[in-house]
Design a protein around this nucleic acid. Structure first.
Length: 482
DNA sequence: TTTTGAGTTGTTCGA
DNA sequence: GTCGAACAACTCAAA
């Protein structure tokens, strides 16, 4: 039997710039791609319903791409290590390659698996497919991890040029007889109750769709990104986050695509100006979040700043539910929460507003918000979710200053000035004039009646008064000082 | 070694 | 209406 390499796919569901796949193909022997569904091993963060919906379609796309190269994708379900060992026995493979993940609980699992597999076969190797730099290679002058973004990113930008992305293999030599595979449907990734129509309307998972989305963004939106990125009513952002999370595209590919785009469109500019791209900076924030979670592994569940362990968070299931369902009475918050529920995604600006509202106005713990986002986002990513929520709550690295409490009315008027976003997701407010759209409780009675709105019936009254809630939040923050 | 200035995403208040 | 100041504490790096 000729040598065979297993390639264990995880959150790297692409053929291009995939170092593990590339290494397997480079051996010049046969290759067997494998995906193992083991959600219980992701505890305490098993993927939520929206993530699993995305995974279903991404695996389908990967299997189709592999089929074009003449290779199957072997799907299995069950504990990863015994499943890999069974596959080694069944196929006689002598090598296992995969791309690393960096979540603390996954590192622990993968380390065990790597040690055990090295007892079984001579070649077990892992690679970096999901970060620009390994977390242990970026440190400040004291040798410690950065906790402020700007010096972190300055340092990363100054490092030597990143290697060009690896090509996708032109063909694959599968084993003479492939081991058995479950049908995709057997993984039961799609919801049993069909609530996912909104996801299907909004998204096209898969490597090809990811590449197309990046290219379209660079051609149509990148130039206006610095200003349009804050407007939820425009298509100002790349919407690459779920593709990046599942590794349908990698940050190195984005990096080089931005560079090539700059070179073909702004030839007159200084050579390295493209590195200052505001869009690339967002890739930098993604990188920063992964490095932070790697270096501070407890922060997925605990605040980085210890003083916040004593913060007097409230418990209020009714308020939490109002926030989750988009029934807080603050239109920009409700629009965001409904967009999330319907499409599995929320615009970044609105994520900040909704998060600030939960932790500062409702005084509910950022953990409750993180858990809800985890379950409902198609781009749910432990590092980014943790960074984002701790930033909003003020308890993380490079956190928002405690006094930065978003005013949902001001934010709505500033970033959804025409009200198109609120009208789309809160249609019961659609006939209210712009001047009152972000504060319907303040609208004159005759205007409300004319717009067909009965506060408390067709649309909720505000669940809290923002001015009073702001004072309460500042008092709560003062209580944990020293 | 010590000091100093700057740091994703804001709001309110008073002149 | 517009504008600047105030709203902590801490990290990081340049001077």
């Amino acid at each position: 039997m000729s040598p065979l390499s297993l390639v264990w796919f995880r959150t790297d569901l692409r053929l291009a710039d995939n170092p593990a796949l590339h290494a397997a193909v480079s051996r010049g022997e046969r290759v067997l791609p494998v995906y193992i569904d083991a959600p219980e091993e992701e505890a305490p963060w098993p993927p939520g319903g929206a993530s699993r919906w995305w995974l279903h379609h991404s695996l389908g796309a990967l299997a189709a791409s592999l089929a074009e190269l003449g290779s199957p994708l072997i799907l299995r379900s069950g504990p990863s290590l015994p499943t890999l060992q069974a596959l080694l026995r069944e196929t006689g493979a002598d090598a296992v390659f995969w791309n690393r993940r960096y979540e603390p609980h996954v590192i622990e699992r993968d380390t065990r698996i790597k040690t055990a597999l090295r007892e079984c076969v001579p070649h077990v190797e892992t690679f970096n497919a999901s970060l620009l730099h390994e977390p242990w290679t970026i440190a400040n002058q004291s040798g410690k991890p950065f906790q402020v973004f700007t010096p972190f990113w300055r340092h990363a930008l100054a490092k030597t040029a990143l290697p060009e992305p690896l090509p996708a293999p032109a063909s694959l030599r599968p084993p003479a007889s492939a081991p058995s595979s479950l049908p995709l449907a057997a993984l039961e990734l799609e919801p049993k109750i069909p609530w996912h129509h909104g996801l299907a309307e909004a998204w096209q998972p898969g490597e090809a769709a990811a590449a197309e989305r990046l290219e379209t963004f660079l051609l149509t939106a990148e130039a206006a990104y610095p200003s349009d990125r804050d407007r939820p009513d425009l298509k100002g952002t790349s919407r690459l986050s779920p593709h990046l999370h599942f590794g349908e595209i990698g940050p190195r590919q984005v990096w080089h695509a931005v560079r090539r785009h700059a070179e073909r469109t702004r030839t007159g500019l200084r050579a390295e100006v493209w590195r200052n791209s505001r869009f690339l900076t967002e890739i930098g924030w993604r990188e920063f979040s992964h490095h932070l979670l790697y270096h501070f592994p407890h922060t997925a569940g605990e605040p980085l700043r210890e003083a916040f362990a004593a913060f007097p968070w409230k418990k209020d299931p009714a308020l939490l539910r109002a926030w989750q369902r988009g029934l807080t009475g603050y239109p920009i918050v409700d629009a965001g929460m409904r967009e999330l529920w319907h499409t599995g995604w929320m615009h970044n600006r609105v994520r900040m507003i909704a998060a600030s509202f939960l932790v500062k106005d409702l005084l509910l713990s950022w953990r409750e918000g993180a858990a809800w986002f985890w379950d409902t986002l198609v781009d749910a990513d432990l590092a980014q979710n943790t960074l984002g929520w701790q930033w909003s709550a003020g308890c993380g690295a490079d956190a928002a200053p405690y006094f930065r409490i978003f005013n949902p009315v001001t934010q709505g008027e500033k970033f959804d000035p025409l009200g198109a976003y609120v009208r789309r997701w809160c249609p019961e407010l659609a006939r209210l004039p712009d001047a009152w759209l972000h504060k319907p409780w303040a609208a004159p009675a005759d205007l409300l009646a004319h717009a067909g709105i009965v506060l408390g019936q067709t649309y909720p009254r505000p669940v809290v008064d923002h001015a009073a809630a702001r004072k309460a939040a500042l008092a709560a923050l003062a209580s944990i000082k020293e």
